[in-house]
Simulated assay, not measured.
Amino acid sequence: MSFINDWIAYIPQLWPGLLVSLQVTGLALLFGVPGGLALAVFSSHPNRIVKAIVIGLVELGRGTPALVVLQVIYFGVPSVAPTIALDSYLAAALALALTTAAYTSEIIRGGLQAVPQGELEAAAALGMKPWHTLWDVVIPQGIRFAIPALIGFAILIFQATSLAYTIALPELLSQAYSIGSSTFKYLSVLLLAGLFYAMITIPASALTSYAERRLARHL
């Protein structure tokens, strides 16, 4: 019963942190997924220099932990460019957007490559230009193939917002630590924070499975 009483008292304090986590996740996906699409498209560019640069950026983004990217953005950017002011909210959104772009580029590239060759041949037979074929045929179908994996990655990004407590962003985990430091009831508040995360991730995981079944039925 003590846990229940604690949770009733903590929910109003943790709720704003959950909203911050969701907002940062939304911004990271809003800017990161289009960035991933651009990287996926240019990773197959006929120019070897462009292709090498894009692949290098993707590998660098995938090989660097999100926590390191977060710290570099928050502490490094202002030291290099003092005129640029980044608060913890913007820094977290930007860092996770960069990480999202790097990882989703591979997810989307796999979706683009899954488009049947017959679709490309049909577009060529109709006299469509390569850019129109890419924009009107390949990208819409490729994104559709990639949707289940993108939803799964969105769950990981939501969980990764917990890293932003290291730069004092008042997200869910940071709020939980703040409550724990004042009440010393860390177990109780962290369990509640875990339930908050599960409240988002479990339905999202179910949505991923549903999307996969729908896609498999279509194929």
Rank of each mutant, 00 (worst) to 15 (best):
196 F>V: 07
143 I>K: 04
151 I>S: 06
212 E>D: 15
45 H>I: 08
162 S>W: 08
218 H>S: 14
196 F>Y: 08
67 L>I: 15
47 N>D: 07
172 L>R: 02
8 I>M: 15
116 P>L: 03
59 E>G: 04
105 S>F: 02
34 P>L: 02
36 G>L: 02
33 V>N: 00
132 H>V: 03
205 S>P: 00
85 A>N: 14
23 Q>A: 13
40 A>K: 04
168 A>S: 15
92 A>T: 15
19 L>C: 07
115 V>F: 05
42 F>I: 00
102 A>C: 14
4 I>V: 13
77 V>T: 06
12 P>R: 09
204 A>W: 04
114 A>W: 01
186 Y>N: 11
108 I>A: 00
183 T>V: 05
91 A>W: 10
215 L>P: 01
151 I>F: 09
114 A>S: 10
109 R>H: 12
82 P>C: 10
190 L>E: 01
55 I>E: 12
45 H>F: 12
192 L>N: 01
168 A>K: 12
45 H>Q: 12
32 G>Q: 03
65 P>V: 10
76 G>A: 10
28 A>R: 05
159 Q>S: 12
74 Y>M: 10
4 I>E: 07
202 I>L: 15
193 A>E: 03
25 T>L: 06
82 P>M: 13
66 A>Y: 13
111 G>E: 00
116 P>R: 04
122 A>C: 03
11 I>Q: 06
116 P>A: 05
22 L>S: 02
58 V>M: 15
84 I>G: 07
68 V>H: 06
143 I>M: 15
132 H>Q: 13
117 Q>I: 01
137 V>Y: 04
188 S>T: 04
58 V>Y: 09
65 P>H: 09
177 Y>P: 01
107 I>G: 00
174 S>W: 14
180 G>W: 03
66 A>Q: 14
208 T>G: 00
63 G>I: 09
35 G>N: 06
5 N>A: 13
96 L>T: 07
140 P>G: 08
116 P>N: 03
217 R>S: 13
134 L>W: 06
15 W>S: 13
177 Y>M: 11
183 T>A: 04
35 G>A: 06
105 S>N: 00
16 P>E: 05
139 I>D: 07
3 F>P: 06
149 A>R: 00
14 L>G: 11
10 Y>D: 14
17 G>L: 09
189 V>L: 02
214 R>H: 09
38 A>L: 14
77 V>Q: 06
114 A>T: 01
30 L>N: 03
102 A>L: 14
89 Y>I: 02
23 Q>E: 10
85 A>M: 11
25 T>S: 05
58 V>Q: 14
65 P>W: 10
138 V>N: 05
143 I>V: 14
218 H>G: 04
212 E>G: 12
107 I>W: 01
81 A>I: 15
65 P>R: 07
94 L>G: 09
137 V>T: 07
111 G>Q: 01
14 L>R: 12
160 A>M: 15
73 I>P: 10
155 I>W: 06
22 L>I: 08
91 A>F: 07
49 I>A: 14
165 Y>D: 11
216 A>K: 15
171 E>F: 10
